[in-house]
């Protein structure tokens, strides 16, 4: 994978979405610098799945890799959307949180270490329920500390997207990179339809779903920082660009007055055309190159 990368710029583009979590992580690194930590042969499996008749995976659906990006030490954590919907269990959650904490400890020692999270997840793994929820709270705490030192970059490439509690983790990231095939939201359409009725959200309306949660919309309304094509090289360049940019002056999740006033300005008596929010919100947001 990594040997091929430098050529892809010149030959055909390589789909990023078609790569599995391990391949996605590896392709982001400077060629030949990445090493996987707590990989499948370390067999840190979920202790809770087998007892519920669900086959575990040897890496619990979370790949941790360390190496160099743009010559700088970086840790990449990638969730495997194909395993249990990328859901957060005890082990996968701890891998993510611990990797962020280790990066943080290195930064505190003066060893600059960036972090990239590849989130493809529906949120809490229901077979591990309260431990999954607790681990998301811990991941969020870890992001909050680490992003003081270095940018914490979140990539949502698709096709699972990023939902549930993990959408809050994405909300804490320094930068969010999405593709048009990715979605970002707290509650998926099915859950809203089941909870609040089909009049509130018709989960069979694909156009509506993409209009609300899709990467193009999230970028256009300023809730994501870059929209890239489904192309590994473009993804690499986006990560390099945000590493170079460093920690933002103010994180989006700390812009409370701005977003509170935006919510206050909305007319709650009706549903909104998502496009309305693009015009209303994008103004004033830092411009970012749309590759």
């Amino acid at each position: 994978m990594s040997e091929q990368r430098n050529d892809t710029k010149f030959i055909n583009r390589q789909s990023f979405i078609e790569l599995n979590a391990r391949e996605r992580a590896e392709v982001l690194f400077d060629a030949g610098t990445s090493r996987e930590l707590a990989g499948p042969f370390d067999r840190m499996e979920s202790p809770w799945l087998a007892m519920q008749g669900v086959t575990p995976q040897a890496d619990d659906g979370c790949v941790v890799m360390k190496g160099k990006i743009s010559g700088q030490s970086t840790v990449v954590i990638a969730l495997e959307g194909a395993f249990q919907g990328g859901s957060m269990g005890e082990v996968s959650g701890e891998k993510l949180a611990a990797a962020l904490d280790l990066a943080c400890a290195d930064n505190e020692k003066g060893i600059r270490t960036n972090a990239v999270m590849l989130l493809e997840t529906g949120g809490v793994r229901l077979q591990e329920a309260n431990l999954g929820l607790a681990s998301i709270a811990e991941i969020m705490a870890s992001i909050l500390v680490l992003r003081r030192h270095v940018p914490v970059i979140c990539i949502i490439a698709g096709t699972v997207g990023c939902f549930g509690g993990m959408s809050l983790a994405a909300g804490l990231a320094s930068y969010v990179v999405m593709t048009r095939e990715a979605r970002l939201g707290m509650n998926g359409p099915e859950v809203i339809e089941q909870t609040s009725g089909v009049d509130e959200f018709d989960s069979s309306d694909r156009a509506l779903i993409w209009a609300i949660h899709g990467g193009e919309q999230r970028f256009a309304m300023g809730l994501a920082d870059a929209l890239v094509e489904d192309d590994a090289q473009q993804m690499v360049e986006a990560v390099q660009r945000f590493i170079a940019k460093g920690v933002p002056a103010v994180h989006r999740s700390s812009e409370v007055a701005l977003y509170r006033s935006r919510i206050a300005a909305l007319d709650p008596s009706r549903q909104w055309d998502p496009k309305e929010l693009r015009a209303a919100w994008k103004a004033g947001a830092a411009p970012e190159v749309n590759q």
Binding site: L184, G185, M186, S253
Partner: peptide, 18 residues
């Protein structure tokens, strides 16, 4: 659990409080 909430990014609101 609402469409307005998803459209206006409730995930960021939750992140802001956290």
């Amino acid at each position: 659990y609402g469409r307005r909430e998803e459209t206006a990014g409730i995930f960021l609101a939750g992140a802001a409080a956290a």
